[in-house]
């Protein structure tokens, strides 16, 4: 069976843990429990009749003083850059992290996830900036860990990309 390591990367409180919880266990909570270090979970998915075992590394969030530890990314076959649509600064953090991750582990598939879609009325992302990264060839998926919208799609799309290599 194929086994792939995926990392969840992004600013703090963007919903990395919530996305994993939604995907792996179909649960969600509004209570914020920040992650220290990294949490690892496993999920089997079926992709074109092929079983893939995803090893999900949910990393702690990045803030001004605590940088994401790049050693956690070693051996990752793909990663998510998670952005909180209601906080524009998390988009900038994602851009910076992408550069750092690519420098550390090279060019592996990744997806930019714009999370908290259920709060779209409060979104403050600039469409121009997003259009620009799409133009660069990035895959961007909007999601809500709260409603589940886009979550499955995000994980399956990344899995597809990783399996195709």
């Amino acid at each position: 069976m194929i086994q792939k390591k995926i990392c969840m990367v992004g600013a703090f409180a963007t919903g990395k843990t919530s996305l994993v919880a939604r995907f792996v266990r179909s649960i969600y909570s509004d209570v914020y429990q920040t992650t220290v270090g990294v949490k690892i979970n496993k999920k089997l998915v079926n992709l074109d009749n092929q079983e893939v075992s995803l090893i999900l590394w949910d990393l702690h969030g990045e803030d001004e003083l605590q940088k994401v530890r790049m050693s956690y990314l070693r051996g990752a076959s793909g990663y998510f850059l998670v952005v909180d649509g209601t906080r524009r600064s998390t988009f900038e953090t994602a851009l910076a992290l992408q550069a750092k991750v690519e420098e550390t582990i090279g060019a592996v598939p990744f997806i930019l996830v714009l999370n908290k879609l259920d709060l779209q009325a409060d979104w403050e992302l600039e469409e121009g900036a997003i259009a620009q990264v799409i133009q660069q060839g990035w895959t961007v998926i909007e999601s809500s860990a709260k409603t589940g919208l886009g979550v499955e799609e995000a994980f399956l799309t990344l899995t597809q990309k990783m399996v195709e290599g």
């Binding site: 086994q3 390591k5 220290v36 270090g37 956690y72 070693r74």
Partner: peptide
């Protein structure tokens, strides 16, 4: 998964 074999530097992964 993905961590071995080690290539080059040692790795420390705290609080996993």
């Amino acid at each position: 998964e993905g961590l071995l074999p080690l290539e080059g530097a040692n790795l420390l992964l705290p609080c996993v």
